[in-house]
Design a binder for these strands. Sequence first.
DNA 1: AAGAAAACCGATTGTTTTAGTCGGAATAGC
DNA 2: GCTATTCCGACTAAAACAATCGGTTTTCTT
Lengths: 142, 142
Amino acid sequence: MKLSTKGRYGVMAMFDLALHYGQGPISLKSVAQRQGISEHYLEQLMGVLRKAGYVKSIRGAQGGYTLTRDPAQITVGEIVRIMEGPIAPVDCLLAASKNNEYCNRAQTCVTRGVWAKVRDSITAVVDSITLADLCKEDQIKE
Amino acid sequence: MKLSTKGRYGVMAMFDLALHYGQGPISLKSVAQRQGISEHYLEQLMGVLRKAGYVKSIRGAQGGYTLTRDPAQITVGEIVRIMEGPIAPVDCLLAASKNNEYCNRAQTCVTRGVWAKVRDSITAVVDSITLADLCKEDQIKE
DNA sequence: AAGAAAACCGATTGTTTTAGTCGGAATAGC
DNA sequence: GCTATTCCGACTAAAACAATCGGTTTTCTT
């Protein structure tokens, strides 16, 4: 039940961009330094976010990344799904799963119900928190 | 955010034992067949559960495993923790974590708060469901 | 007493995921 | 033209995962 660094760093980077929202492009170098992440690795992750339309990049000197939407319009859940794929503690919860024969066992499905509840409780949390919420919390802390 | 087969199979096996609670020792062979798990692999997992005191084993022919407690006294959360270790989407939530320097960053801790909420919502679910609950559900389904 | 059914144990293995690194090409500001 | 930056694809070391294998011990049944 661990989040990989993809999801974790993804949220950290997006939070960092949210903190600097409206201040022009932010370089990965600065994000990586502030958040303590390998710059090259972060590069890969930002590529994913860019292709998903969540960030915009400006190349060249003084370039960097900016959010394409207001921080209040981006939830942690969206970022996690982009970075890690659908939120599901077990594969048989995925609609596209082909192991139906397996999941049709009545007994299996009882335990499956547990994992569905777990998934729902996770999504309820991450989908209710926006980057703007995190920024607000950050201000209070300082 | 995936559960490994350890946790999944562990809950399945314990649920199977719960269904047969009070009927004497249940062989791994039968559990493995009903649940569709490799018997040898399940053996390893049951060793963990046995050492943790959750099941009792009887060796020799007609031997097998039984729960050491009533199904109503065993939660899914307990089983998951035994099989997978502490429930924590990120390592910095663990008390024994030594990367405190890392976690002391104010910004990091904002995102950390998110993962703490995720953890709490997961534990609320798994700690509230007992094996007896699953057995009850199973009866309704049939 | 023999045979079979089971738990027990430790080593090994193939695959996948993770968490990066590396080297360079393209682009844009100064 | 220099430098800062994004962009891209290949590569890799290490760990985790999900078993498998081979054998030992124990106990029930006949």
